[in-house]
Simulated assay, not measured.
Amino acid sequence: MKIAIFTDTFHPDINGVARTLKHFTNYFEKQNITFKVFAPDSNSHSNEYISSHISRFKSRSLFFYPECRLAFPNLFRIKAELEAFSPDIIHVATPFNMGLCGIYLAKKLSIPLVGSYHTDFNYYLKFYNLQFLSKVLWKYMKWFHKPFKKLFVPSQETYTQLHRRGFTNLEIWPHGVDCQHFHPYYDKQSIREQRGITKKYLLTFVGRLAPEKDVKTLLDVAKELPAEVNEQVQWLVVGDGPLREELEANSPANMIFTGYLTGIELAEIYSASDLFVFPSPTETFGNVVIEALASGTPAITANSGGVKNIIQPGVTGYLCETGNAAEFADAILKLLENDSLLIQLGREGRDYALTQNWDTIFDHLLWHYQSAFEDPSIQKFA
């Protein structure tokens, strides 16, 4: 099987789509599956990951989302590379320029086409005061995804939302987690000392510091906790984005901002944390949530989006009304005041994460690929 992936973000970009696709290509390499990725150049550490499997194109940062890139692909070059590669299937992961190239060439060269839906852009509009664009956005998204023989979505919540909107050929493609990398067994005391954590409890957020993550609610939650509890709490905010400067200026004294962390550094933070607090309502899945659970850290999240399908209330964490700082604070207090419950939820979260194995998930996805490109109604190019 030869697989071509068209995406507007890829490793070493730091976002859920790029990280998921990197897990996928790692799986291809382990299984000796031939693949080629067509993606923009990266805005960070561009020389960190160079591979003959990746074809990069010039790009610029999106003005409202600098971590993502708008590619300027050379269609003639892509067509030549694609014909030389001769893939069995094309997978389009994003609805921007690279994705449009993938759709066009799949049709022109009669290559079976599938896609995946990772981001709830419609929900983003609310946080940028652009709700008036909702109807136009949905019209475009339906048009963009219509040619796919299969459209993979990361959660039941996203499946339901798109089905109601009239999207077809939907299949659930849940995301997994590397439980050998994210685990509870790092040296927590050493990590706390390295980070200067002296408080009894460590509460952590990981994500982009942007409006769609509802990070301002995070500040409200921190300020909502009683003074005697706040004296025992240290907040660690891992990530970066357009709101970082404003958040730091208005944050309480017990909140530390680290910027982006990856690899072992990130895994250690999850492991050393007592609670993971994540108010974002816009997630189609919530990779950071399942990473926290794999690390034995219960999660308190917004009762919205794909995280609803990860968190079992009272078992692996709690779900709170979006933007309701008081409800988030109550859930935090419930666990900080009950050590045995905190430990129990951490164990349950780890047990759940162990069932979400990437290889098993990718095996199932390849089965869907097989059924797509073996469709006798599709004739591949010669």
Rank of each mutant, 00 (worst) to 15 (best):
Y186S: 08
W235Y: 10
F64R: 10
N303H: 12
G286F: 02
F148G: 14
F72C: 08
I33V: 12
K58M: 06
D240E: 13
P226D: 03
L75M: 09
E212Q: 12
A325P: 03
V114C: 08
F205L: 13
F278N: 04
D220T: 03
A80P: 05
T9S: 04
L21V: 07
I54D: 05
R69W: 00
N254K: 10
F362R: 02
L170T: 04
R60G: 04
T297C: 09
K188D: 14
F38D: 00
L345S: 08
S155F: 02
H163A: 15
W235V: 11
Q180K: 08
R165G: 08
F28C: 14
Y186K: 09
Y128V: 01
Q312T: 15
K199Q: 09
A93T: 01
A325H: 02
T7R: 07
K107S: 15
N357T: 09
L243N: 06
G263Q: 07
Q189K: 04
A227D: 10
V233A: 05
F278W: 09
N32A: 03
E246S: 15
I332S: 02
P226Y: 01
M98E: 00
H91N: 11
Y117A: 11
T282Y: 07
I269N: 12
L105F: 11
P211Y: 14
Q194N: 15
A325T: 02
G263P: 05
L125D: 07
S86K: 13
P226Q: 03
R208N: 09
S110R: 13
H145N: 09
T20A: 07
Y123D: 13
F278G: 08
V233S: 03
N250P: 11
V307Y: 06
F373N: 00
P313T: 06
N43S: 11
L125M: 02
S340P: 06
